[in-house]
Amino acid sequence: MGTPLIPEPAAGAARADTDDGPVADLLRPFVVVAVVAAVMWVQELVDLVPGTPFDSWGIRPRSVRGVLGIPLAPFLHDGFRHLFANTIPFVVMGGAIASGGIARFVRVAAIVGAISGIGVWVFARSGTVHLGASGLVFGFLTYLLARGVIARKVTWMLGGLVVLVVYGGILWGLLPRPGVSWTGHVFGAIGGVLAAWVLHRRTPGTAA
């Protein structure tokens, strides 16, 4: 018998097999943010097991070991109350940033995390360990506030005002308080403004 001939699928059908559709494209950035938050919760659950020293890997100012805490600290929290306080604003504001693209969320998080972590490592009080995603949260807030002004986009400015109304109260965390990593908050906020400037500054020749 001869080899049977199978009709080649139409171009549109081929695309349908590989294209997840517009809904999936819209949800994918939010899923990425949710997965990052889920990693924080899984780590905290595992941390309930006796003998798990995860929290000791936070940022230790001016310590060689503490350098590893710069990328790790946002995933470590001092209990579920601390984690819950960071999770909602992280997911909401992170999702707002990721709606502009997963790459944008990664860049903002990387800039904010680096500035916040390095600032803590250099300037925070010795003999302390700094944990939590609050540096990212403060950076996300100031990024969303600053990007509209830097890019001169009215819609982003209005969005920033909404964010300020909803989460502006956390800015009190920039003030020094015992037992709170306010240094991370301050440098996270600086990192958010820097991220907005790096990603959205108008350069000569940019269209209005």
Rank of each mutant, 00 (worst) to 15 (best):
M1I: 12
V49E: 11
I6G: 04
H82T: 10
S116E: 11
R15P: 10
F84Q: 10
G94I: 08
R60M: 11
H130G: 09
T18D: 07
Y167E: 01
E8F: 15
K153D: 15
G2H: 15
G66S: 06
V92S: 04
A208K: 15
I111R: 08
S99W: 14
I118M: 00
V154R: 15
V193C: 07
A146F: 01
I70V: 08
G184Y: 01
S181L: 09
V120R: 06
G117P: 08
R107D: 10
F105A: 05
S116Y: 10
V163L: 00
H77I: 03
G169T: 10
V49D: 08
V67D: 01
F80E: 00
I150M: 07
G205T: 09
L131A: 05
T18P: 08
A96N: 01
G191H: 11
V137D: 00
L76G: 02
F90V: 04
I118E: 04
G101P: 09
A14N: 13
L158R: 12
L131C: 02
P176A: 00
A109D: 08
I102M: 10
V36T: 03
R147I: 06
G101S: 10
M93C: 07
G173M: 13
G188Y: 01
I59D: 03
P29W: 00
V165Q: 01
P61M: 00
L144I: 00
V162C: 10
D47N: 15
H82N: 01
L45K: 10
A103T: 13
V31E: 03
R28M: 15
G160W: 02
N86R: 13
V33N: 00
E44H: 13
L45C: 09
H200Q: 03
V162Y: 12
W121E: 06
D20L: 12
A124P: 09
I102E: 11
D78L: 11
L76N: 06
L68W: 04
E44M: 04
V23Q: 01
A146G: 14
F80C: 03
A85Y: 11
G132I: 05
V39K: 06
A189K: 04
G173D: 14
P71I: 01
I190A: 14
I102S: 07
T142E: 12
R202H: 11
A151L: 02
T128D: 13
P29Q: 02
V35A: 09
A195V: 10
